[in-house]
Amino acid sequence: MMHDIPLAWMLALSATVFVIGVVGVLVRRNALVIFMSIELMLNAGNLAFVAFSRALGSLDGQVFVFFVMTVAAAEVAVGLAIIVNVFRLKETIYVDEINLLKG
């Protein structure tokens, strides 16, 4: 088939997206950007699921993606609410400046 992309390429893309996400979480200090990086990690997982699903010829992986997307949407709802609430109280979402709790 003309459109047959090798599994390795898809996995390489998924791994790249995942690593971008991990690095983003570790180096960025803005809570929203960290959150976006986390979403990248989840989507990298989705991509891997779809790729494997195709390679293995089983539908399971594609079904899981729906679950993951639902979970990610719920996570956005909760996460943004928490971040907005912090912003209301502190007027910043830079995690370095939010440092009341330590010890």
Partner: peptide
């Protein structure tokens, strides 16, 4: 709120892994 944000960000990070 700060506790929730830290818990959330790190927890979601872990979920990604």
């Amino acid at each position: 709120s700060e506790a929730a944000m830290k818990y959330f960000l790190l927890g979601a990070f872990a979920s990604g892994f």
